[in-house]
C-alpha cells in the first residue's frame, strides 16, 4: 500500500548545523508508527521538520503522494496533516470547546460533527467543554491537544511525547486512544519515551540516534531485541 506520509533522506536543523541527518520514514493509513531514541536524538526536530516548522537542508516530504516539502503549517493542516507538540499544546485561556474550534480553523465545514466525534472519544472533554483549558490536568490537556488536532480530520497525525509526565495508568489510556485513532483510518506517528508501551502498540518502529536512523522494524520485534532493550530499558 502507498504510504500516506513518506519522508525521504531529510536533513534539517535550527541554525547552520544539521540535527536530523538523512532520515527516511514512511507511514501507512490506519497504522501507528513510533519513533524512539535517547534524549536529544532529534526526534522532536524531525517532527517539526515534517510539519514545516524548520527549514529543510535537503530531502523531501510527501503527503498522499504529493511533494509538500517546505510547506508552512497552515497549508499542511489544510492538506491533511496534524501535529501535537510536546509542551504548550493547548490554549489556556480558551475554553475546551474553543480549543477544538481553533483546530477546525482550516476545515470549518463539519465542525460540530467532528466535535461530537472528539467528545465521544474523550468523554472527559465533553464534561469540561466550557472550562478554560488552563484549568485541565496534564492528562486532560494531552487529550484536548489530540482532540484539537483531530478537528481538521487529518490523514496523518504527528504526536510528540503524548504521555510525557503522565502516570502509567494514564499512559495506558492515552495509548488506547492512539490505537483507536489509527483504527479509524489515520496514520499516527508518535515520538515516545515510554518505549515499552509504544513499541508494543505500534506496527512499525524507528530508532533515532544522534540524528540518524539507526534501526527500524515491527514494534514488538524491536522491543524483543537485546541491543535495543539495552539502549532504552537498561536490560
Amino acid at each position: 500500500m502507498e504510504p500516506v506520509l513518506s519522508v525521504s533522506e531529510i536533513t534539517s536543523g535550527y541554525g547552520a548545523s544539521p540535527i536530523v541527518k538523512g532520515v527516511s520514514i514512511a507511514a501507512k493509513a490506519a497504522s501507528t508508527v513510533v519513533i524512539v531514541g535517547p534524549n536529544g536524538a532529534g526526534k522532536s526536530t524531525l517532527l517539526k521538520t515534517i510539519f514545516g516548522l524548520l527549514s529543510i537542508f535537503s530531502g523531501k516530504v510527501y503527503l498522499k503522494g504529493e511533494d509538500v516539502t517546505g510547506m508552512p503549517p497552515e497549508r499542511l493542516v489544510a492538506r491533511g496533516m496534524g501535529y501535537v507538540p510536546q509542551n504548550r499544546n493547548v490554549f489556556p485561556s480558551l475554553s475546551v470547546r474553543e480549543n477544538l474550534e481553533i483546530g477546525a480553523y482550516q476545515t470549518p465545514k463539519h465542525t460540530s460533527e467532528r466535535m461530537e466525534r472528539v467528545y465521544l472519544m474523550f468523554p472527559d472533554l465533553k464534561k469540561a467543554m466550557a472550562r478554560p483549558a488552563g484549568t485541565l490536568s496534564g492528562g486532560q490537556r494531552n487529550m484536548l491537544a489530540m482532540g484539537r488536532a483531530l478537528m481538521s480530520d487529518p490523514d496523518v497525525l504527528l504526536l510528540d511525547e503524548p504521555t510525557a509526565g503522565l502516570s502509567p495508568a494514564y499512559t495506558k489510556v492515552v495509548w488506547e486512544h492512539i490505537v483507536r485513532i489509527a483504527e479509524i483510518g489515520k496514520s499516527v506517528i508518535v515520538v515516545e519515551q515510554n518505549t515499552t508501551t509504544a513499541l508494543t502498540s505500534s506496527e512499525w518502529g524507528y530508532v533515532l540516534v544522534a540524528g540518524e536512523n539507526r534501526d527500524q522494524g515491527p514494534g514488538p520485534e524491536l522491543l524483543a531485541r537485546p541491543d535495543i532493550g539495552k539502549m532504552f530499558l537498561g536490560r
Partner: peptide, 24 residues
C-alpha cells in the same frame, strides 16, 4: 466569530495557533 477566536488563540500562544492551522 471564527476570526475573533483566532485572535484570542494568537494572544494565548502564537506558535500553537500557527500549528493549529490559524493563518497568523
Amino acid at each position: 466569530t471564527r476570526v475573533g477566536k483566532a485572535m484570542r488563540s494568537m494572544s494565548d500562544d502564537p506558535d500553537l495557533a500557527r500549528i493549529s492551522g490559524v493563518p497568523i
